[in-house]
Amino acid sequence: MASPSLKSPAGRRLVLDVANSSGLEDWAPELQKTKVYERILLDLILGELPAGARLDEQSLAAHYDTGLAGVRDALGRLALEGLIIRRARSGTTVAPLDLVELRQGYEARVLIEPHCAQLAARNASKAEAQAMFEVFADGEEAARTCDLPALVAMDLRFHAAVARASGNLALARILIPLQHKAARFWVFSFNGASEQELLDEIEEHRQVARVIASGDVEGSRRAMLRILDVQPEAGARS
């Protein structure tokens, strides 16, 4: 059966489009293992697979209606990202929510992601910039209904798109797993968030896409810093 967390209340199928961040053909979006990876990833972020939970390959294959090979490949990639822990004798478990790791990952993102936005302003095609903006095409509806799976999927797709549009694959490979880890904590910020607060956050992301499309390198850096809750002056280079 399909995982229930992969559909919004409106019944839309969610697509993350982040697995091909490796730039390798063996993780092409249409492959079954890629689809399984993204489905498990979203459930990890949403807490459907909570921290410390044991993961059994047979049970996962049945739950996601897929083969064992795809599950094993997906778990291998998630282990490399640090989202799950695989031990020879004790099995596979969901990684704990580590606040120290979160802080360190955030510090790395503050350094890397604004630079990726700058590179995207130089290198992104019109189609890539438009795709960033269109990630939030259903944003207003998702905010109105507090559609958490859809909002998380949009956020992941947006940040992965910026990283890829930078044209620097090495940075994208570092950045996207950091975003995945941060998203496990970010979902808690939805608790009590008003529709207007969600709409404001969506608009901040759209503004990044607009500035990147305009080719404004410094403006793109500043706009990304605002998404990361860093004052642009604080993130300025000396």
Rank of each mutant, 00 (worst) to 15 (best):
N191G: 01
D147F: 08
E141F: 10
D138L: 08
R122Y: 10
A165K: 13
R72I: 00
E128M: 14
L99D: 13
V217S: 04
G235R: 05
Y37G: 00
A95P: 00
L111A: 12
D200Q: 10
S90W: 03
A129Q: 06
Q179D: 15
E233C: 06
S21D: 06
A53Y: 01
R144K: 14
H63Q: 14
G47Y: 07
L41H: 08
L198R: 11
L151R: 12
I202L: 14
Q179A: 15
G23L: 07
R210T: 08
A2C: 07
A2F: 15
R72D: 00
V71T: 00
D73C: 02
D73R: 07
K181D: 11
T145F: 12
G11Q: 06
L75D: 02
L42W: 02
A69Q: 11
A165F: 14
L199N: 11
M224N: 06
L75Y: 07
P4D: 09
A124I: 05
A51W: 02
A142W: 09
L169G: 07
R237L: 15
W186H: 15
A137N: 10
A108L: 13
D138G: 15
G11F: 04
G167L: 12
L175F: 12
R122H: 12
A137S: 13
A10H: 05
D56M: 02
L6F: 07
G23C: 06
L148C: 03
P114S: 13
